[in-house]
Amino acid sequence: MLSKRIIPCLDVRNGRVVKGIRFVDIRDAGDPVEMASAYDHEGADELVFLDITASHERRETVVELARRCAEELFIPFTIGGGMRDESDIRKVLKAGADKIAINSAALENPAVINRCSKRFGAQCIVVAIDAKLNQKDPEKRWEAFVHGGRTATGRDAVEWAMEAVKRGAGEILLTSMDTDGTKRGYDIDLTRAVTEAVNVPVIASGGAGNLEHLVEVVRKANADAVLAASIFHYGAYSIRQAKEHMAAAGIPVRLT
């Protein structure tokens, strides 16, 4: 049986990890590759790197990041940030990333999903969606946002997820802007709405504050993977503890 995945997420700016971390045995807590290797050794199933370098320099930094990670990581990794078109994506995949994540570029030009999925395979195209509940909507739907959550698109997030998959997205990385940073748990309703709407894996993101939250989003919303940053970076929990907790709740996880 396929295991549920635990995916630490690292924000990288100018080649350095932005958030601090707990690992005591690494020399340089700001080095994304060293930090990622530590997560690999601890049992992370996959890693996501989001390059948040200022956009005009990001085309280069994101390729360099992929190249460096590919040298030393022996688990799959996804890179997101700043890729606009097929040529940007090709460079990052060629540099060794297993998957790329696109958000704004996909919403602004959805055909990029079709082209890249056909060219590189659906398995390496992750469409990232930042969604926020529209309080004014009588039906209480979620709206997709771009540009790091700054720009509303008017698109229904669940419908957009369905379209992205139809166009060839192999996976959806779903971040709830309502729960992100709250540490009060993932957005169960949003995640469930998307897992029920699409037939590709959905990575739940935003809001993990304790280990029970990981269990909850898998159980109640059928998430295929859970992404978290701060609960691992700041040392509240280790990957191992997270997996043991999920295993104890009857969720299949890779324990080695």
Partner: peptide
């Protein structure tokens, strides 16, 4: 009957 491609960690 599960999702194809089969992607992820399996035993």
């Amino acid at each position: 009957r599960l999702k194809v491609p089969h992607i992820g960690w399996n035993r």
